[in-house]
Amino acid sequence: MEIISLINEDLIELNLEATTQKEVISQLTSLLGQQGRIDSESAFIQGVLERESEFSTGFGNGFAIPHCKSDTVKTASVIIGKTKNGIEWNSLDNSPVTFIIMLAIPAAEGATTHLQILATLSGKLMDDEFRDQLMNATQPEQILDLLDELTTQKTN
């Protein structure tokens, strides 16, 4: 299970209580912090918000892919959150966001397997069926299975 170095059940929170973009980002970032995957939560949050201010990562249909490439990231990671409330995200289609896939990308990392998986995941998010499967998942395990299939397909 190659995906396991990037994400685990404790990096998935399907019942986020957050009501604003900033709350979502800081709550998901604290999960990263708890696992020691970043040096500084505040630096990471700032990086993510800077990226959002350049251009919203809300890419439509209720999904957003906030991300930060920074030397505060020690381990490439994916953090997934689903919110009870629709979050204003200034999305491409103006719809509120409820499903967030946050990427933590180490600054120094070159052409690695980790980056390849993050890249594959990003591309797969353009697939309607894959997005529906993510949105309909009720347990972290289901999300992990979906992501794992992705990496397995890729290496075949």
Partner: peptide, 29 residues
Amino acid sequence: PAGVAHTNMAAAALENTAKKMGLQIKVEK
């Protein structure tokens, strides 16, 4: 800018759409 998320989302979107439209496309990332 980060070279991970939107680079690949845009490439997939163009490839999927061109395929649906019956067009040939080559997308360099």
